[in-house]
Simulated scan of single mutants.
Amino acid sequence: MTTTQFQVRKDRLDTTRTVQLPEAPVSDGQVRVRIEHFAYTSNNITYGAFGDAMNYWQFFPVVPQADDPAGGDAPWGLIPVWGFGVVMETRCAGVAVGERLYGYWPMATDVVLQPARVSPEGFFDGAPHRAALHPVYNHYQRCAVDPLHDSASEPLQALLRPLFLTAWLIDDFLADNAFFGTCAPGRRGVMLLSSASSKTAYATAAQLAQRPEVEVVGLTSAANVAFCESLGVYSRVLDYDQLDTLAADTPCVYVDFAGNGALRKAIHGRFTALAYSCSIGGTHVDQLAGARDLPGPRPVLFFAPAQAKKRQGDWGAAGFNERMARAWQAFIRQVSQPPAPWLVVQHHSGPEAVQAAHALVLGGRGDPRLGHMLSMSGGA
């Protein structure tokens, strides 16, 4: 039996390969999971773009191949993805064959995990190479008892659940910091969201839109303005060439989902009352740039697990989960109910289809209303 992996060059995300490996043995205390299907969005491109800085490459390290010219230093990696899998082999007490799991996977047909801290709700992967990585990414949820799981809408869950959690925490972080002083009696603070057509951005906008003290301005390409306006969560939508329609002294916060260095420089250069610059991701991977020599506040990278940890301390785990679940259910209703759904799912099976979907998402050429669900199994 073999395992199929979809690997990318860490330094050139447009360079990929499909690798067949012998199945890794399952030792005492481990399980093998068949990865059935997983979401692929600009969020995953961010994982690749920030793979070294944020340790995303460390979750599923690549075994060097004998024919790699660089040997053990070959710069190949596995981009992590969110989706669903089924336990197909177990040597771990408390985890049964056939259990369905939601969690963080490699782009592969299967993976071996080492369950630790097993509970009725799920378990953590206790593999030594993941010990220092954030537990948010190491937890596997048993679908049978997951209050957010619905077998009929697994694609929506895989596509939106991790993005929604990040968005919900961004909204909470901004509110927790009183929108960095941009709001005042008789004046709403402006939240500028780049890459406004991306799922994480519009999920953030959906949360912020419920706060009357702020105005949510979406920034996007001219081609995606109509889509962003159709969602009804942005107060205004501007294309990237329309920044000058906002007054230079507008009290604002920049929430950067694009990572576009030229856009960041333009925003920092124009808005004299920019109170905070929050860096979330890098959907514009060909235009990523550093944050040196910028006027105004220094951009700060947002790390969702840190805000989650703070709020779990403030509210307790049960309180945190209750608030998140309530917001999630409301968001899914919002996404699903309009006559024109926010998201239409496309399925891609087999290595060639996965490669094509990767190229489409990486290039930012996709229809923002489409959501891609991938499987390494199947295909021609």
Results as ranks from 00 to 15, higher is better:
Ala330Asp: 09
Phe331Asp: 14
Phe331Lys: 12
Phe331Met: 15
Ile332Phe: 14
Ile332Met: 15
Ile332Tyr: 12
Ile332Val: 15
Ile332Thr: 15
Arg333Ile: 03
Arg333Asn: 06
Gln334Pro: 14
Val335Ala: 13
Val335Cys: 12
Ser336Val: 11
Gln337Tyr: 11
Gln337Ser: 15
Gln337Gly: 10
Gln337Ala: 15
Pro338Asp: 13
Pro338Lys: 08
Pro338Phe: 05
Pro339Lys: 02
Pro339Cys: 03
Ala340Lys: 02
Ala340Asp: 07
Pro341Ile: 03
Pro341Asp: 02
Pro341Glu: 05
Trp342Ser: 01
Trp342Ala: 03
Trp342Thr: 05
Trp342Phe: 00
Leu343Lys: 07
Leu343His: 07
Leu343Met: 11
Leu343Val: 12
Leu343Ile: 09
Val344Trp: 03
Val345Ser: 06
Val345Phe: 04
Val345Gln: 00
Gln346Val: 08
His347Ser: 14
His347Trp: 06
His347Met: 10
His347Thr: 14
His347Phe: 09
His348Pro: 01
His348Val: 01
His348Lys: 00
Ser349Pro: 12
Ser349Gln: 15
Ser349Ile: 12
Pro351Cys: 07
Glu352Ile: 13
Ala353Cys: 08
Ala353Leu: 05
Ala353Glu: 06
Ala353Asn: 06
Val354Leu: 05
Val354Ala: 08
Val354Gly: 03
Gln355Gly: 13
Gln355Trp: 07
Ala356Met: 00
Ala356Pro: 01
Ala357Leu: 01
His358Gln: 10
His358Val: 06
Ala359His: 06
Leu360Thr: 09
Leu360Cys: 14
Leu360Pro: 10
Leu360Tyr: 03
Leu360Glu: 10
Leu360Ala: 12
Val361Tyr: 00
Val361Ser: 06
Leu362Pro: 10
Gly363Tyr: 02
Gly363Ile: 04
Gly363Arg: 05
Gly364Asn: 14
Gly364Cys: 14
Gly364Pro: 14
Arg365Lys: 13
Arg365Trp: 03
Arg365Gly: 10
Arg365Ser: 07
Gly366Phe: 08
Gly366Asp: 14
Gly366Leu: 05
Gly366Gln: 15
Gly366Tyr: 12
Asp367Ser: 05
Asp367Ile: 04
Asp367Thr: 06
Asp367Cys: 08
Asp367Val: 02
